[in-house]
Design a protein around this nucleic acid. Structure first.
Length: 662
RNA sequence: GCCUCCUUAGCUCAGUGGUAGAGCAGCUCACUUGUAAUGAGCAGGUCAUCCGUUCAAAUCGGAUAGGGGGCUCCA
């Protein structure tokens, strides 16, 4: 047997020519795939002289993707075993798992998932080898004649891997065969690979749910049935993932909104339209009050605008042309009809506002503006209504009526970079005050085919945004071509307590509206100039931010936001009067305090307060009363006994004014 | 909007063709115990709504409304 010289994980080696990576890494079961000359390949790939081979562990991002992709294959094989007439769509790995789209004869039921899962376990146990086979377009079309969706993909495989996906793309068309114990193919799928060496390298997986999904992601296409699954390098990691999902469910703002009596969606009002209950109202007002104060300090001026407007305003802004399907339909007022039903006098159309900017532009325009007034920063808690498609509504984070903390900044071109820079700093600091700490930024740039405005304006604004972003020393992700047609934007992405990312604030430069509204100011030389307009929202929507904070804190709001900051619990009835007096003192100090004077046992009251996630419990019995003190129980179960009333008030007040979490 | 699942007491849920059940919450009474559930009793539902099938419907079928999970969308 001849020898070839190769490099394995940086070490030069001479190996027999029939050796494959699977042999090189045979001792390490963690190695499930490899890179040959920088390209991710199967461990069964033939090696040639001079190849540089790098091992890829199942726990690396690339290894995980291969694991999940291979598990998707196993699922597809199992589905076709259980439901023979099912046609295949696509099945890529995704974050934390995979999916595969199918066109079954009848949609899957939860029972079906169990059947598929047990068929999968058999396949995994059998240890079927994944074998890569190069084919041609013609051959593949014959072989896969019974898989119409696969044939469509083959047809889409343009030159040089255009439309590349996990199925097709790259220079070759390949099919992966799953080989049974006897080495004969038992199942095949059009696929680019690579894959695990065999199905027994799948340590832990679970099918999660079924869902509908449009073929190739377009609502014009037929809807397929998608099965989502997850796969992990070990059972422990799978369990940890399932626990994370359970934790996320526990902190779901819709559930907590109910449990903590914060808000609800009465059916009588309509989908996506929330009412805030007193406790939710306290949180919301605390959020708003603080935001107001900070905006005031930052030089914003507060304005108000109506919820309704005549159609002309949104015609002028262009919203009726582009977004009318996202708006509530018009109300027609003062129309007069003839007896035969024909129109005698046409009525006026009024719309609920889906955004506030046109109103702010009218305020800008209400009189002549001088450069001395700029930057002019107009702020409003503006409630808007958008007719979101029924399927997208999600609690309070995606609703049909919501309130934006909306501001528009009108400034000169020269002022724009400085304004963007200070704005971004302001935004991030304010988010930090609300308890979010972990951010990255996303810069959305121009899509040349869908945009208006001069190239140099875009260039200038994009650079100003980029500079402002870089100055924050945060990770900056480029969203190429992701800008709205009217200008580039930066969005702030925040990670919550369990690592989920939420898009929070946006800062957007607009070249379109100042033009459509013909906004002008008088410059120092007396000429008339068009201002630059910056849209920005910190919370995006107050309701949405409320929902995000609820999930971030899991309902255990920091004292400054908590609806009830302290609750007094007497050990027995006879100490109630003493605590009523303590609560009076707390209230006098501006603390939202209450007493639980019900018939319940003290232990029950502690439990209730704990479930309401009240930050401070103040307990008093004989000892405390004699000493003029109270005993703290904190949310984490810790206690501090015999605290003089004055000290207790000071401690709570301090926690509130510092806006710390406890 | 599309696919799919769901809707029973204030909340969480049992109940798959023979005219409704539990726990918690609520109310009443008794009890008063130092850090996560005291006990007893009472009350509470035209089984989301409407239409149909059936001798008989919470249960089967359809429509509507609301909700969950996805897809598409998010100015």
């Amino acid at each position: 047997m001849s020898q070839i010289a190769i490099t394995v994980d940086g070490q030069p080696q001479s190996v027999a020519a029939d050796q494959r990576p699977t042999h090189l890494f045979a001792e390490n079961k963690e190695i499930v795939v490899c890179k040959i000359n920088g390209v991710l390949r199967d461990l069964w790939t033939d090696l040639s002289e001079g190849d540089v081979v790098e091992s890829v562990s199942i726990s690396s991002p690339e290894g995980l993707a291969v694991l999940r992709h291979s598990t998707a294959h196993v699922m597809a094989q199992a589905v076709q075993q259980v439901f023979a007439q099912t046609r295949l769509g696509i099945g890529p790995p995704i974050t934390d798992g995979f999916y595969y789209d199918f066109d079954p004869q009848v949609p899957f039921t939860p029972d079906d998932l169990e059947k598929v899962e047990s068929a999968m376990r058999k396949i995994v146990k059998e240890g079927q080898r994944f074998r890569r086979r190069v084919t041609s377009e013609t051959e593949a079309l014959v072989e896969l004649a019974h898989e119409p969706y696969k044939c469509e993909l083959i047809g889409l495989k343009g030159p040089a891997g255009e439309e590349a996906s996990v199925e097709v793309g790259g220079s070759e068309l390949t099919i992966y065969d799953n080989l049974g114990r006897d080495g004969q193919p038992v199942w095949s799928d059009l696929c680019r690979g690579p894959h695990l060496p065999s199905t027994k390298h799948i340590p832990a997986f679970k099918l999660m749910r079924t869902a509908g999904a449009y073929w190739r992601g377009s609502e014009k296409n037929p809807m397929l049935q998608r099965i989502y699954g997850t796969a992990w390098p070990s059972q422990d990691e799978l369990n940890a993932y399932l626990e994370l999902l359970a934790e996320a469910e526990k902190r779901d703002h819709r559930r907590l909104g109910q449990e903590l009596d914060l808000f609800s969606f009465p059916e009588e009002i309509g989908s996506g339209l929330a009412v805030f209950h007193p406790k939710g109202g306290i949180i919301r007002r605390a959020m708003e009050d603080y935001s107001r104060k900070r905006h005031e300090d930052e030089g914003y001026e507060f304005v108000y605008s109506p919820h309704l407007t005549k159609a002309a305003l949104f015609q002028k802004s262009g919203h009726l042309d582009w977004y009318s399907e996202g708006m509530y339909p018009p109300m027609i007022m003062d129309e007069e009809l003839h007896a035969d039903g024909t129109i005698k006098r046409p009525g006026q159309q009024y719309y609920m506002k889906p955004m506030n900017c046109p109103f702010h532009n009218l305020i800008f325009q209400s009189r002549g503006r001088s450069y001395r007034e700029l930057p002019l920063r107009l702020f409003e808690f503006g409630t808007v209504y958008r007719y979101e498609k029924s399927g997208v509504l999600h609690g309070i984070t995606r609703a049909r009526g919501f309130t934006q903390d909306d501001a528009h900044i009108y400034c000169t071109k020269d002022q724009m970079p400085g304004e963007l820079d200070s704005l971004l700093t302001f935004v991030l600091n304010l988010l930090r005050d609300y308890g979010l700490e972990d951010f990255y930024l996303e810069l959305s740039t121009r899509n040349p085919e869908k945009s208006v405005g001069a190239d140099e304006d875009w260039e200038e604004a994009t650079e100003a945004l980029r500079k402002a972003a870089l100055a924050q020393n945060l990770e900056l992700v480029l969203d190429e071509g992701g800008a709205a047609f009217y200008g580039p934007k930066i969005s702030v992405q925040a990670k919550d307590a369990i690592g989920r990312t939420w898009q929070m604030s946006t800062i957007q430069v607009d070249f379109q509206l100042p033009q459509r509204f013909e906004l002008e100011y008088a410059a120092a030389d007396g000429s008339r100039q068009r201002p630059v307009m910056i849209h920005r929202a910190l919370f995006g929507s107050i309701e949405r931010f409320f929902g995000v904070l609820t999930e971030h804190y899991s309902g255990a709001f920091p004292p400054w936001l908590a609806p009830v900051q302290a609750i007094a619990i007497p050990v027995a009835d006879v100490y109630t009067d003493y605590l009523i007096d303590v609560v009076k003192q707390l209230k006098a100090a501006g603390i939202r305090a209450d007493i639980d004077a019900s018939d319940d046992r003290m232990q029950k009251k502690v439990r209730n307060a704990q479930m309401q996630k009240i930050p401070f419990m103040l307990i008093a019995g004989e000892e405390d009363m004699k000493a003029g003190a109270v005993s703290f129980r904190y949310r984490n179960g810790d206690q501090k006994n015999g605290v003089p009333i004055k000290d207790a008030i000071a401690e709570i007040s301090q926690a509130v004014s510092d806006r710390v979490q406890v």
